[in-house]
Each structure stands twice: as structure tokens, then as C-alpha cells.
Design a protein around this nucleic acid. Structure first.
Length: 462
RNA sequence: GGUCCCAUCGUCUAGUGGUUAGGACGCUGGCCUCUCACGCCGGAAACAGGGGUUCAACUCCCCUUGGGACUACCA
């Protein structure tokens, strides 16, 4: 069992491609097969090395490791040419010298007259020989039917007369997509072609090519598209579609994988899947036929879930770069761990974590909202708090709990009254992790220092 | 225009002839509570329409409607 993911390096790995890759990867892992990565760079104009790098990076980030490749089609030109010549020799392909302009003209005219715009066969029987401008066309059958046995959609029947003589080799000597895929998939022994269903209409042509070349036909599985909220194919105008953009926005790869796998695939009512479970459960029969709308909210929910359940060390390593970027000192890993521990149940992304954790790294700035909590009436409470806290013997989570209990009992001040002002004094914000958590993480010295700062602030503004 | 695909809550989906049509996100009421989250309990929310087939259709067939993809010397 061999599957492949074959992106063209004309941009970043996008959400749709990632899911296709994921399905291929999971299928191969499930059946203990081989997953191959092939870069389809036959379009010299649009392909870039930069894109190839970006795609490989995104694959790695998602954890989709490949067993073979990456193969590059641009390095396999002789193979395609060899196959092309074989077809010509056998009369199954021919040279065509129709110019792109002519063809475009005919296409427009056909469309205007309400006819189907297909190649009219001008060069089909001219027995031309190779010239500089010539392309090679496949001599497609004009009658009969071609059936695609799709693992997801069932049998799809095409009338061969609908298909025309497609170009298999361009004038620059490069193969076209439909030809290169067939040659590669056949030569690489791909047994299952799992791809987006935007390829269904290409499939009969490819099957014809397999037959002409004498290759066995693989199994096809056409996965429904991922759509934007407006139900059109997901694209940049719907927001972030690049996999790496999600990394930058603070998403965990496991969350994205879990989200993507559930688009058009399901396993009963289960929503959360570990990688092991995915490999165990994934199969084509769980894949649905209808397209799926990309829902950022659900991805966010999953991300939050994964943040909450991530191993602490891994989570620290994941947020660290975000704090580093903000210029904070991230050298104390133990401190980082404590911060992450405080923050992890209350954020949806790593970016949020980085932002909400800012006060752990720099002393708070008291803004206008803060000032409504740091009022003169709080001053005596702060004073007592500072004095008592300085001498409180047990500075642990439990000890801090006891501290507040005894403090409120002895002073008669309700915790509810002083909690927010303390929070604001320590963090500059009205929203933060629990008081005991931040106090413990910040440490007694820092807490006392910030309480004093708040006191001064009250003095200076009151 | 032609070819092909698709159709259960707003969204992701379960369902495979007989169910009070289930779960999840989001929304929402409540509980918990030092804020925010988390967690827990509850709620609103769907079988596109019309014909068949059948004792019985969300489930099978056909049509309509709606949506999508493809229609290149792009992939």
C-alpha cells in the first residue's frame, strides 16, 4: 500500500492541501504502507524553491513525515519524455503545432456559439514531426465510456466524447500535470490516489493515459473540498489559509491536525483524537461525500483543549518563542513553567498566552481602568497586607490561602473587596490567573514590591 | 454553456427503512467563584422541495431547487 502527497510549489502549504496530505499519511500509517512526498514543479514559471521549503517545513510542523522523497518532477524529465515518445511511436500521441492564440480563439468562438470548448483535432492526423513549437497531444478515444471507481463517491461514468486530446508535453519539453501524475504515480507504485475532488474531472483522462501506457490503474479516493463561510472554495480572502500562519497565530499542530481530520471524516461522535487513535481509526469508509465549511471557532476550541492538555515541558517550549519575540528574558525555565501552568487553562492560543503573561516579565503599568481599583480607600488594606505578608511564615499555595483567610478574619475585610485591587496592583489588569497562583509564581519579593508600587501610585494619584 | 460532484441544527457531523433524529463548535439560562477561564447541569437550533417504491422513509429511486468543482502548453 503506497500513498502520496503531491503539492505544486507555487505557494505555501494551505489548509486544504494539509488535509489531503493528512489523509494520505493516515491511510498509509493505518495500513502500514508507504507515504511518499512528490513535488510537482513542472510549471517552471510558478514553481519556486522557497515554496518547496515552506511546504516541507509545514509538513514537518504538522508531523506528517514521509517515507520516500521528496521527489521532484523537474528532475524526472527524461522519464516523461521517454513515455511520450513511446506513445508517439505507438500512434497514441501526436505532435500538434496549433498556436496558443489560435486555440484561445477557437475556444472563445466555441463558447460564444454554445458549443463545448474542446480541441478540434486539427493536428490529430497530420502526422507532424517534432518542431520547436510543437506540443504533444494524447490521442484520446472518441467513443465509449470511462468509469472512475471512486472509493468515496462510487462509480462515476464519463463519456469519452466529452474528453479531448489533451496536451501531455508542452513545447518547452516539460510534461503537463495530467501526464506527469500518471507516469509518476505508476512508476512510484502508488496504489491509492487520495486527493481533492477538484480532480475528479481529470481522472478519466488519467485513466485513459494509464491504459495507453499499459500501467495498472490505482484506486482513487476523491476527498470533498474545504469551503469558506460563503461556501466557495477556501481561499485567502476567507482569512488565513496557510498552515504556517496558524503556527504564527499560536496554534498547536496537534490541534490543527485534529481539526482538519474531522472535516469530511468522522468516527462516531468522537471529536478529540490522539495521533495513535487517528492511525487506528482512520479509513476511507469514514470519509463523507459532502464538502465542509472551515470553522475557525471550532479550531480555536480544539486549540484551547490541546493547550490545556499539552505536556508542560512541550507547552513551555512552544510559547517560549512568542515571549522571546516580545523581548522578555526567557532564560529561567522553572519560572516559565510556573507561568505556563497558571495561564494554560485560560487561553485559546499561544499568542494569547504570551500576551496575558506579560505581567510576569515586566512590572505592570497602571492605566485608567486600574486606577479605579487603586483608590485611597485601599491604602490601609495594602499597608496591612504588606506588613503581614512580609512576615507570613508559609509562602506556599496552601499558605497563601491560609494567609488570606486569616487576613480577612482578623481585619473583617471581605476577600471580594480586596481581591480585584490586589490583582490590579500585581498585574495591572482586571483579568488574570487566581491570586494565589500569581502570587506564588511571582514570588514574595516581587509581590511585596508591586504592592508597594501600587501604594505609591495611590499616594501620587489620590 | 457543457461535464461531474454534493445536499441532516448557523457550522462540523452520527444515522444506513421503524430513533423523543444523537454528539461537537458557536449561541444561551444556571451552578461553581477573588477576576477570567475551566468544569458541571439545562435550553433554543436540522432531515431543501416535490413525486414515487414500501405496511413504514432522513435513510432507496426520479425530478426540481440550491451549492460547488472542472472546462489551459496551471496543478
Amino acid at each position: 500500500m503506497r500513498t502520496r502527497f503531491a503539492p505544486s510549489p507555487t505557494g505555501y502549504l494551505h489548509i486544504g492541501g494539509a488535509r489531503t496530505a493528512l489523509f494520505n499519511w493516515l491511510y498509509a500509517r493505518h495500513y502500514d504502507g508507504v507515504f511518499i512526498l512528490r513535488i510537482e514543479d513542472t510549471d517552471q514559471l510558478r514553481s519556486t524553491e522557497e515554496s518547496t521549503r515552506a511546504i516541507l517545513e509545514a509538513m514537518s510542523w504538522l508531523g506528517l513525515n514521509w517515507d520516500e522523497g521528496p521527489y521532484f518532477q523537474a528532475e524526472r524529465l527524461e522519464m516523461y519524455q521517454e513515455m511520450t515518445e513511446k506513445l508517439i511511436k505507438e500512434g497514441k500521441a501526436y505532435y500538434c503545432t496549433c498556436s496558443p492564440e489560435e486555440l484561445e480563439q477557437k475556444r472563445k468562438q466555441a463558447l460564444a456559439e454554445g458549443r463545448k470548448p474542446k480541441y478540434d483535432g486539427t493536428c490529430r492526423d497530420r502526422h507532424l514531426t517534432k518542431t520547436k513549437e510543437a506540443v504533444v497531444r494524447f490521442r484520446a478515444p472518441e467513443v465509449g465510456i470511462t468509469t472512475v471507481h471512486d472509493l468515496i463517491k462510487g462509480d462515476i461514468v464519463f463519456q469519452n466524447e466529452e474528453l479531448d486530446d489533451l496536451v501531455i508535453q508542452r513545447s518547452d519539453g516539460y510534461p503537463t500535470y495530467n501526464f506527469a501524475v500518471v507516469v509518476d504515480d505508476a512508476l512510484m507504485g502508488i496504489t491509492h490516489v487520495i486527493r481533492g475532488d477538484d480532480h475528479v474531472n481529470n481522472t478519466p483522462r488519467q485513466i485513459l493515459l494509464y491504459e495507453a501506457l499499459g500501467f495498472p490503474i490505482p484506486k482513487f479516493a476523491h476527498v470533498p473540498m474545504i469551503l469558506g463561510p460563503d461556501k466557495t472554495r477556501l481561499s485567502k480572502r476567507h482569512g488565513a489559509t496557510s498552515v504556517m500562519a496558524y503556527k504564527e497565530m499560536g496554534y498547536l499542530p496537534e490541534a490543527l491536525v485534529n481539526y482538519l481530520v474531522r472535516l469530511s471524516w468522522s468516527h462516531g461522535d468522537q471529536e478529540i483524537f490522539s495521533l495513535e487513535e487517528l492511525i487506528r481509526y482512520f479509513d476511507i469508509d469514514g470519509v463523507g461525500k459532502s464538502p465542509a465549511v472551515f470553522n475557525p471557532d471550532k479550531l480555536l476550541w480544539l486549540n484551547q483543549y490541546y493547550i490545556r492538555h499539552y505536556p508542560l515541558e512541550k507547552l513551555v517550549a512552544s510559547v517560549k518563542p512568542f515571549w522571546e519575540k516580545k523581548g522578555y528574558d526567557v532564560s529561567d525555565t522553572d519560572y516559565l513553567k510556573k507561568i505556563v501552568q497558571d495561564l494554560k487553562p485560560r487561553v485559546k492560543t499561544l499568542v494569547e498566552m504570551a500576551e496575558q503573561g506579560a505581567f510576569y516579565f515586566e512590572e505592570p503599568h497602571y492605566d485608567e481602568t486600574a486606577s479605579t481599583y487603586l483608590t485611597a480607600s485601599m491604602k490601609p488594606h495594602f499597608r496591612k497586607l504588606i506588613t503581614r505578608l512580609r512576615e507570613w511564615p508559609d509562602y506556599t499555595k496552601e499558605g497563601i490561602g491560609n494567609f488570606f483567610q486569616s487576613f480577612t478574619e482578623e481585619t473583617g475585610v471581605k476577600l471580594k473587596v480586596i481581591a480585584q485591587p490586589i490583582r490590579v496592583a500585581l498585574t495591572g489588569k482586571t483579568v488574570s490567573p487566581g491570586l494565589d497562583e500569581i502570587m506564588l509564581t511571582l514570588g514574595r519579593q516581587q509581590v511585596l514590591r508591586r504592592l508597594e508600587r501600587a501604594e505609591n501610585y495611590i499616594d501620587n494619584t489620590g
